[in-house]
Design a protein around this nucleic acid. Structure first.
Lengths: 243, 243
DNA sequence: CGTCAATTTGATTAAATTCAATTTTCGTGG
DNA sequence: CCACGAAAATTGAATTTAATCAAATTGACG
């Protein structure tokens, strides 16, 4: 499974690539300032309210961001895959959400100060933030106006594109996590999976990965327009970049 | 009502202020490039999929952004008040949502190209985008993990802070729009209002504005922690800036 | 003042949650 | 590598919540 996850780090579907096509000088500058950390499965990367003077880039592994209500209810805001940048705090100065690793993970940390001296880095961070904004807006449409099966289908379709393989969806998270992401209960997730399986869109789960039978069908099942050609385009087979 | 809306344009709660505290030179530069437009009530400002090479700033009036599913279902992503910046498209190049004016509105338009020559403008736009991201993340928590009454209370509390008056909430939109924002039906909005009124948190609606009896109580009713001191702080009583 | 749209309110239905029991999977340690 | 215990997933039945349907009232605007 980890191999499947790590494989997707070099794909265009990984949002907010930071160092792709960076010229050697800029890359060197970035490497200078970028911190490096490894965290165990389940470990916190940062917590809501902590002061934030940098953003994180996920090199390997999977993580998720979430917020909580005082009574413990949890909303998983996003799942993070290799290549993703996260932890944007704006000018508030403190993280608006928490992040934990779902698997053993390797990350880098880019101090915000570095972006002040480097216009190109600043623009790349800005683009990553705008991609995060777009993802959040899609999440609002999903939570606000889709029913349970549509939400699950839409989530699987998105995960399919991010996994970058026509035949598999990486699902390194628990049903509970998906439920907290889609505003549903784990039982409802299970029932929706069963329904999509009955519809012939997905197959069985093995090794934290789900067999895909009709990826485009998932998009239709989600209520979204059937776009063609947005599928996974591999950019570089082997990624050796900073993130 | 319009007076109430326009009054809030100068407040700190207006997200993404663009020209506050801008030095005269930078302000002049900005004024040079900023376009100007006026739209009628109900008019489209931009539509999903249209190419986007600039962002909009709302000077006067109220607008909203939304996305649609193919079958017509609509998710209102945000309501926009004077001072708000919106229409960020990232490096996709096309608007990820549509925007329409809810009242007669006056806007300016800042070409993205202008940000390339002006680091300070770029940073301000970036900050506005990060605020939009934070707002979207709060929306995810609301839609994913709050029940109907909590969503309405949370929405009213947010609107209360943005209106900037301790005794009123500006509500220039229809119940239908609020419903499409909160993932509910207009009937449910009506019932939730009735319940909050019964709880003694809000009063009657008059002139598109809602009387507030216990603004902090709205926050509690939303399930969020009762923060103090985040209330409306007026920055300048009279706003004469670009946006 | 009249018309149409929007809101309110009640009754019914549908969808997802909750509760509960069972099976399967996973992680740990031998 | 296997076995064991705990956690997670699955499935069914009952309950709850919000949607839907329908009717009555209010409000906006020419």
């Amino acid at each position: 499974m980890l191999a499947l996850i790590d494989a997707c780090q070099a794909r265009a579907t990984a949002r907010g690539r930071l160092c792709a096509c960076l010229d050697p000088t800029a890359f060197g500058r970035l490497r200078q300032v970028a911190g490096d950390l490894r965290v165990a499965r389940g470990a916190a990367i940062f917590a809501e309210g902590e002061s934030a003077d940098g953003v994180f880039g996920l090199r390997q592994g999977v993580a998720m961001m979430f917020r909580r209500l005082p009574d413990g209810r949890r909303q998983v805001l996003d799942f993070l895959y290799p290549g993703d940048l996260f932890g944007f705090a704006g000018d508030y100065g403190s993280h608006p959400a928490s992040a934990v690793a779902l698997t053993r993970a390797s990350l880098c940390r880019i101090p915000l100060a570095a972006a002040r001296d480097d216009a190109e880095l600043a623009e790349r961070l800005n683009n990553a933030a705008l991609r995060a904004l777009d993802a959040a807006l899609r999440g609002l449409l999903r939570l606000g106006r889709m029913n349970a099966t549509e939400r699950v289908a839409d989530f699987l379709h998105e995960s399919w594109l991010r996994t970058g393989r026509p035949d598999l969806i990486a699902l390194p998270m628990k049903a509970r996590d998906i439920a907290d992401h889609l505003g549903l209960r784990p039982e409802t997730i299970s029932r929706a999976f069963a329904q999509l399986r009955r519809l012939g869109l997905i197959g069985e789960i093995e090794d934290n990965a789900l067999a895909v039978i009709d990826g485009d069908g998932l998009r239709c099942a989600s209520g979204l327009p059937a776009r063609t050609g947005e599928s996974m385009r591999i950019v570089n087979g082997n990624h050796k970049g900073l993130i």
